[in-house]
Design a protein around this nucleic acid. Structure first.
Lengths: 328, 328
DNA sequence: GTTGCTTACTAACGCGAGTTAGTACGAGGG
DNA sequence: CCCTCGTACTAACTCGCGTTAGTAAGCAAC
């Protein structure tokens, strides 16, 4: 920076003013131009660490999540990183599944970098107990929530998603719609089922509990549950699967019986896992979890928190849109 | 740090010596203990930015990659991050697919953080043209290579993987083994096919070019190619698919014909995409791309480069192990 | 021709650490 | 009693930058 100043024939302070675009410091255009030119010629690149030190402001947010276990965790990261870049911030990513460090140690590392805020993201929608250390910095939970609601949280609208999926089947003329649910103890299962029932009721279709079967959240679980539904005398004409993996198994069960999708049985999934949904044959109509948007909203809330704006810690829910493909 | 010094009744310098474990500065155990205690009591957390500034050493590596497009990119990150943590380094991740910034802009950001090295990772094995800016810092290519070989590169051993897959089928007694290849212009396709042929030749089985068909790298492509192979009078008893998505399509083709996997037709995939391979029914035997290990090796090479150790820029290949499941 | 007001800067301090050169103290040797 | 020689520290500088307080030059007004 000193070299740039010398080359432009001004002081280091002036260079700082120009490069930081401080309008109040009345620098004439001619001087400004000289400084910018000198910086370009010398290939000057500011030192982010030194700047953070002097400005008492790091321009960094942190995010902790499992990046490998769930393939869609990266979507949260992408959404958050893009939004952060728009704000001139950079996102530091700490994996919470490392073998060489605990989750708390990872957060500790982030705090040593003096991050201005932290996003704590789960790979599947659930209640979590965040490590105490999280509370030392403005924090937002994404795709999870803590039991006592003391931290702001952003979660997918499972109920709405369940409604969208069911409505799509109703719109296609189905009235006997099977539902394969996940582990009934988790929010995804509860919410999606509630949405399913709401949509049926709203359409004046009676809810038949015998059409609801539970299964493992795997392809095998979906296969088994689908078999149960399909082997009834009055088999449903459509199946809403708790997730895409189960839909994968359901496809097998349907095809095995010589039935065609969607002609004989329509299928809707949930999660929109590209690798599955886009490659099943026929391609699977499903409901997307809004990971990117949740990440982006997380950064927005962080910005508000860091700016000291009051935030109602109420949980924010984000819509889960229906992704139309060819299985309905 | 000053507070810690005061509480321990020593100078700031002494605190620095203790916390950085400088053995040369003869600090007696008693003093050391007092300092560590004071730091703990005050909840002292060093400021990484300030430390980097003073020590002229950031302890950061950077990695640039597309994190969303390919689901396994995160494995490279995980492998690299774990190894970096072991070295006391932290990994800064820049997505090269952001809408708000170009790839070069992302790297620029990393350089402003004064990273000590850069990993440039591709999501599929290929030749790349790296932006010039990459050469301003020690850099290693992962899962890709540049045309003129001027940068060290780490790539998967496609040939070995093809050999493993084919050998597994030979071991199971198959001699008529179909191969569904990817776009013949890419290294993955060339290498895997070469491995396939090498294994056959080594086993004394003659290579029948008519058993090799090309297809789109999708489930539909795999389906079409598998149909072609299966509808021959002398259909193969095993199929080696260019990747797992194609295997997914091949499964459909096989099942449609009332054939059983692996009894009538055995299948081997490539890529080990968990979401597919672990959930297909039966579960798919496939070859894994060593993403985590490539990431880890990348960090190791970076450490060597940054330490000024000479490195032959020869490309390093990493073994692609066979993952046994139930389709053979 | 002093005062006062802009305009266009600069000197100097501070951020939180690492590091070098130097010092005070006590023990042991002559 | 003086002179080394470790031992156990400390003062002061430095890293690269942001920022505050201050100043010199030019001009208009009285």
């Amino acid at each position: 920076m000193g070299d740039v100043a010398q080359r432009a024939g001004v002081s280091r302070t002036t260079v700082s003013f120009v490069l930081n675009d401080r309008a109040d410091a009345g620098i004439p255009d001619e001087t400004r131009r000289r400084v910018i030119e000198a910086a370009a010629e010398l290939g000057y690149r500011p030192n982010a660490g030194a700047r953070a030190l002097a400005a008492r402001r790091s321009d960094w947010y942190g995010i902790v999540t499992e990046i490998v276990t769930a393939p869609f965790a990266v979507d949260v990261i992408k959404g958050a990183q893009d939004r952060a870049l728009q704000q001139g911030k950079f996102l530091l990513i700490a994996s919470s599944e490392s073998e060489v460090a605990t989750e708390a140690a990872g957060i500790e590392k982030l705090l040593e970098q003096r991050i201005e805020g932290l996003i704590y993201a789960a790979t599947w929608h659930r209640a979590v107990r965040v490590p105490e250390i999280v509370r030392e910095v403005p924090a937002v939970l994404v795709n999870c929530f803590d039991a006592d609601g003391s931290l702001p949280a952003i979660v997918p609208d499972e109920v709405g998603g369940g409604r969208h999926a069911t409505q799509r089947l109703l719109d296609a003329g189905h009235t006997r719609i099977g539902l394969i649910t996940l582990d009934p103890a988790i929010p995804a299962s509860v919410g999606r089922r509630q949405g399913y029932e709401e949509a049926l009721v709203a359409a004046g279709v009676s809810v038949d509990p015998s059409l609801v079967v539970a299964g493992d959240a795997t392809a095998d679980g979906g296969y088994a549950a689908a078999c149960e539904l399909l082997d009834r005398a009055d088999r449903p004409t459509a199946i809403f699967c708790g997730n895409d993996r189960m839909a994968m198994g359901a496809y097998d069960a349907i095809k095995e019986r010589g039935l065609a999708i969607p002609r004989d049985v329509a299928v809707v999934g949930f999660d929109n896992q590209e690798l599955i949904a886009a490659y099943l044959r026929p391609r699977l109509t499903t409901v997307a979890l809004p990971f990117q948007e949740m990440g982006a909203r997380g950064v927005e809330m962080l910005a508000a928190l860091a700016a000291g704006q009051p935030i109602d810690t109420a949980t924010v829910t984000i819509d889960c849109p229906l992704i139309e493909r060819s299985s309905v």
